[in-house]
Amino acid sequence: MNVPPEELKVKIIQTLNLEEVTPEHIANDAPLFGAGGLELDSIDALELVVMLENSYGVVITDMEKGRPAFKSVNTLTAFVNANRPA
């Protein structure tokens, strides 16, 4: 069964302890990092790496390769669903 984007939004908020942010605040295609979205930084990305491994068994060992997955909730959802162990 595929992971829905809404589930990832909740995980992101919980993992990063984002005050004053609700899942409705996060547009599926808005940038997670940099201006115009959640404005997360590289350390947040690393927290998300740990979350992806614990929650979905998706392991990222090289941030260079993992970076494209963290563009938006959409890209992250696609990445998780493509890389989940069977």
Binding site: I43, D44, L46, E47, V49, V50, E53, N54
Partner: peptide, 10 residues
């Protein structure tokens, strides 16, 4: 060493 806390370390 499972589930490290990257934001705590720095």
């Amino acid at each position: 060493e499972r589930e490290p806390m990257p934001s705590r370390f720095p």
